[in-house]
Amino acid sequence: MSLGARVGAAATAPLRALAAALDPAMRGWQRLAGRGGMIGLFLLPNLAIFTIFVLVPIGLNVAYSMTGGAQVFLADRPFVGGEQYARLLECENHLRPRTCRDDTFWTAVWNTARFVVLQVGLMTGAALVTALILNRSLPAKGFWRAVFFFPVLLSPVVVGLIWRWILQRQGLANLVMVEGGLEPVNWLVDRFWAFAAAVGVSVWAHLGFYALILLAGLQAIPKDLYEAAEMDGTRPWRVFRRITLPLLTPNLAVVVVLALIRAVQIFDEAYVLTGGGPGTATMFLTQYIYETGFASPVRNPGLAAAASILMAGVLVVLTLLRLSRQRRAAQR
């Protein structure tokens, strides 16, 4: 039995046992409600959970964003209209968080924007190079792929802790600095370096995932194109510019949009690594929402809801872009 069949069997065996136990009841239901009733039953669990834990919260979110106070239940909360949005959006100069009514929010907005640009740029570039290299004929291909991929499966908490340990004052990073004849750096206490660390650690953790998508795209490019180019004696750089890059563009677009969607929501590994600090140097939007709604001494769920709706606006645009790109990549 192949490994694939074995995993498949292991995953389905309990399911099938459960399904077998339900069999008589289901037969009765089909006799009672017909095939249409069965279709409804198949959809019911998933749709019920969707409705309760996704659709209802979406609707409630709008309602929450228009109420004030610290109470959890909507019915206990006073209606304040657009006050929460006004509080978030009022600024003398939106580029300077200090002039805003809610300076932490705008700090988080600009931190997130900077993070997104840097992280997505660096990561896409590194993933492209990695994919191109892994697509060459190499000895021990599987090993190299695993090297770049394995951090993807680590939990964000683990990633944050590993790097916190390396970047602490007496950690491995400073050992390397000292051995290299440089001054040790207080990585996570310095505003600049803490932000750079958040970007770098995030690239480290997710690079392999995007490299893998690009690698699949590279492998889908017909080999005869390269053979033809080789027969014409085309130079490698030209082959890359004229064949590889144009044919990889749909996959690159998917990768960029996917990376953007995830980067906007950056939270856990940065939170474990720096806790948003020093000060607010690595405070990102999701952390702002979490702390405003749940972790600050004075909770303000309404403000958190308003902030999350503003973030959702960005994400909806990006997701629509993703779906259209994915369709285009699939049509190729």
Binding site: L47, F50, I52, I58, S308, M311, L323
Partner: peptide, 25 residues
Amino acid sequence: VMLLIIATLMVPLSVILVPLYSVVS
């Protein structure tokens, strides 16, 4: 139904944190 499911792709957890908490509560 398909469209509904696609739509939920756009709603990551961080966006519905507050109301989801109240629903679960």
